[in-house]
C-alpha cells in the first residue's frame, strides 16, 4: 500500500493515504456514536415496554426485511470487489462492481418504499389515528422503527450519491490504481451503512 508522505515546496503536493483513512475511521466512529444514541433509546424503551414491543414487531414483514438484509450484504461484497478490481488495475471491472452496488442499493430503497407505503396504507405512521389508539409501547416501537430505519435509509441515499460520484471519478481517471483512497473510504462508509442495518434487522424484525 502506498504510504507516500511527501511535502515539497515547489508544487505544494501533499498526499497522505494513511492520514486520509485515519480521518475516515474517525468519522465512522462519530456515525457509530450517532446511531449509538438511537440504540440506547431503543434499549431503554424496549426494557420498559417488553410485551408491547413484541406485539408491535409481529406486524413487520420479516420476508422483506430478510430480503433487504441479503441485498445490502451483497452490495457490501460488490464494493469490496470494486476496490480489489482497481488494485488489480482493472478499471472496467471496478466500475461494473460499483454499478452493481448502486443497483442493489436502489433495490433496497425500492423495497423500503413498498414496505413503508404498506404500513401507511394500514394507517400506521406517526400521529395517525389508528396508531394513537394503540398502547404507548406500540406507538414508541413504531416511532423508533420509522426514525431508525428512516435515518438509515437517509444514509443509504447519501452513500449512493457518494458512490455515484466515485464511479464518475474512476471513469475520468481521477481515481486510478495508484491513487484510490477515495474509493476505499467510500467503501468503508458503505460497510458502515451495512453494519448498522445488521443491527437494525434483528432488533425490529427478528425479536418477535
Amino acid at each position: 500500500m502506498n504510504n507516500s508522505h511527501e511535502v515539497t515546496l515547489e508544487n505544494h503536493v501533499h498526499r497522505d493515504d494513511v492520514g486520509a483513512r485515519m480521518g475516515m475511521w474517525l468519522f465512522l466512529f462519530t456515525e457509530v456514536l450517532l446511531f449509538g444514541g438511537m440504540f440506547l433509546v431503543y434499549a431503554v424503551y424496549r426494557f420498559q415496554n417488553q410485551e408491547q414491543f413484541k406485539l408491535a414487531a409481529l406486524e413487520l414483514n420479516t420476508g422483506i426485511g430478510t430480503l433487504n438484509t441479503i441485498i445490502l450484504l451483497t452490495s457490501s461484497l460488490t464494493v469490496a470487489l470494486s476496490i480489489a478490481a482497481i488494485q488489480n488495475k482493472n478499471k472496467f471491472l471496478s466500475i461494473v462492481f460499483l454499478n452493481s452496488t448502486l443497483l442493489l442499493a436502489l433495490m433496497f430503497m425500492v423495497n423500503k418504499y413498498f414496505e413503508w407505503s404498506t404500513k401507511f396504507a394500514h394507517g400506521i405512521y406517526p400521529g395517525s389515528k389508528e396508531l394513537l389508539e394503540k398502547p404507548n409501547g406500540q406507538i414508541l416501537f413504531y416511532g423508533l422503527y420509522y426514525v431508525m430505519t428512516g435515518l438509515h435509509g437517509l444514509h443509504v441515499l447519501i452513500g449512493m450519491i457518494i458512490l455515484y460520484i466515485i464511479k464518475r471519478q474512476i471513469k475520468k481517471d481521477i481515481i486510478t490504481p495508484d491513487k484510490y483512497v477515495k474509493l476505499e473510504n467510500s467503501g468503508l462508509y458503505w460497510h458502515l451503512v451495512d453494519l448498522i442495518w445488521i443491527f437494525l434487522f434483528p432488533l425490529f424484525y427478528l425479536i418477535q
Binding site: 466512529f29 462519530t30 456514536l33 435515518l151
Partner: peptide
C-alpha cells in the same frame, strides 16, 4: 469533540422529528 458531539446531534434531531411528526420518543 468526536466522541461526544454525535450524541447531541442525534438528540437534537430527535427533538426536531418529535416536533415535526409527533413520533412520541
Amino acid at each position: 469533540q468526536i466522541i461526544a458531539t454525535p450524541v447531541i446531534g442525534i438528540t437534537i434531531l430527535l427533538v426536531i422529528i418529535e416536533r415535526a411528526f409527533g413520533v412520541g420518543i
